[in-house]
Each structure stands twice: as C-alpha cells, then as structure tokens.
Simulated scan of single mutants.
Amino acid sequence: MPRLVFMGRLEDIAGTGELVVSAGPLERILAALDPALAVQLLGEKVRMALNGRLITDMGGISLGEGDELAFLPPVSGG
C-alpha cells in the first residue's frame, strides 16, 4: 500500500506522521482526506517528494504499491 508522509507542521495538522492509503491517482487520494488537511497539503509553498525525489508537478501522479509521497512544508529558522 502507498503511504503519505507528513513533515513538520503538516504532521500536527494530520495528527500523524504517515498515513497508508489506497493506490490510485493523487487527486482521488487527496479528495478522500479531511478537507482541511488536503487544503494545507496543496499549499503553494509545500513541496512533495515521491520515493525520495522532489517533484515539481503533481499532475498525473498516481501512487502504486510501495510508493511513498512526502509532503514537505517550508522551513524557517535562523
């Protein structure tokens, strides 16, 4: 089963560090999540990494068996 991994503040919003989901198109997977979480995951500054590789275009993403999609919020610090 594919997994969604939430980092930083997104983990707080999701209430968990990762979530196992059914395989399929990313749009369908996000539509099945809590709407408040889905909105945060689609934020302009949130980056995604599919199986450890940063992706810039979420169009056409379909998660399959064993895939991991990590959501990476912007980091601040100094």
Rank of each mutant, 00 (worst) to 15 (best):
M1P: 07
Q40W: 10
E44P: 05
A31F: 04
M7I: 08
P73R: 12
D67P: 00
G66A: 03
I55C: 02
F71C: 02
I55R: 02
E68D: 13
G60M: 05
A36R: 15
R9E: 12
R47S: 11
L69T: 01
L50D: 11
T16L: 00
F71N: 05
G60A: 08
T56W: 15
L50A: 13
P73C: 11
V21S: 00
L4H: 10
E44Y: 03
A32H: 04
V5K: 06
L4W: 13
K45S: 11
L10H: 10
Q40G: 13
L4P: 09
L30K: 03
A14L: 04
G64W: 02
L37Q: 03
D57H: 13
M7K: 12
G17T: 00
A31S: 07
S62C: 14
M7F: 12
L33K: 01
E44N: 11
V46G: 10
T56C: 15
M7N: 11
M48P: 07
G15W: 08
A36T: 14
D67L: 02
P73S: 09
I13P: 05
G77A: 11
A14H: 03
Q40A: 12
P73Y: 09
L41D: 09
Q40M: 12
P2R: 02
A32R: 08
S62Y: 09
G66L: 06
G66H: 04
V5R: 07
G66Y: 06
G78L: 14
E18Y: 05
E18D: 03
L33R: 04
G17H: 08
G77N: 14
D67R: 04
G59T: 08
E11M: 15
A14P: 00
V46H: 06
E27Q: 05
A49S: 09
I13Y: 00
L30S: 07
R9Y: 13
G15D: 02
A32W: 09
E27I: 06
E65A: 06
E68N: 08
P25G: 03
G24D: 01
M1Y: 05
G8Y: 12
V21Y: 01
G24R: 07
S76F: 11
L37Y: 03
M7P: 08
